[in-house]
């Protein structure tokens, strides 16, 4: 985690998702769709659901997913036209005027959170609702979450809830081995939600 280093005066936005609180209601998913006008067929943030265990000992595990706003984002490195970029405060964004829709970043991001907008042909991804954040508001998903499972804030500010959760709780980020240094942390992340079930068909599909 590289939260400590770099320019301490600027904020470093990040998110902590407490999966013990998550009830899998998909409100964040819908809020994001509405706020950002995300068309059918693509998502900026969603909740993956897994059923695990053997009856009668079964449980559902959830994993809200979004762009991890990596400190060392592969998507930014591979973009040939500087359309993907990282703001000083850590938000990874796409400039729609620069993007040419080559999709290279989609094949390079280890988290598969990038989509091509079906109508615009440019890249669409979570940007932490940067326009809300700039106005001092919370991202739509955070504000909509009924159980406050999602916590958003400045990781540089030791008073903020995110910074305290990250220092106090056992947190885990996704695929840290990719060297991307993701800045979305999970409390109580279940292993099954990270497993890739390639053989299993989605129940959803049937």
């Amino acid at each position: 985690m590289s939260i400590e280093k770099k320019n301490q005066k600027l904020p470093r936005w990040g998110m902590v998702i407490d999966l013990n609180k998550c009830i899998g209601c998909h409100t964040c998913e819908i809020a994001c769709k509405v706020q950002n006008d995300v068309p059918l067929g693509i998502w900026r943030s969603w909740v993956k659901e897994i059923e695990k265990g053997v009856y009668p000992n079964v449980v559902r595990a959830f994993r809200p997913t979004l762009c991890n706003h990596c400190e060392d984002p592969v998507c930014v490195k591979v973009c040939p036209v500087h359309a993907s970029f990282k703001r000083e405060d850590g938000i990874v964004m796409v400039d729609p005027h620069l993007c040419v829709g080559c999709r290279y970043c989609m094949s390079a991001c280890p988290y598969e959170v990038r989509y091509i907008h079906p109508q615009k042909g440019i890249l669409d991804k979570c940007d932490f609702c940067h326009f809300r954040v700039d106005e001092g508001l919370q991202p739509a998903c955070v504000e909509a979450c009924p159980t406050s499972a999602r916590v958003f804030g400045d990781l540089h500010d030791s008073e903020s809830e995110v910074a305290q959760l990250v220092s106090r709780e056992p947190v885990q980020a996704l695929k840290v081995d990719m060297g991307t240094d993701p800045h979305v942390y999970y409390i109580g992340l279940d292993q099954t939600t990270m497993e890739v079930k390639r053989e299993v068909e989605f129940v959803w599909d049937k």
Partner: peptide, 27 residues
């Protein structure tokens, strides 16, 4: 044909070149 914005890509590739990307050299 694969790129969503072919005409834009023709000049963006040179004007906004990112030296870290493999595609830049391809152009």
């Amino acid at each position: 044909m694969q790129v969503a914005w072919p005409v834009k890509s023709l000049w963006h590739n040179f004007v906004y070149l990112n030296p870290l990307s493999a595609i830049s050299y391809g152009a």
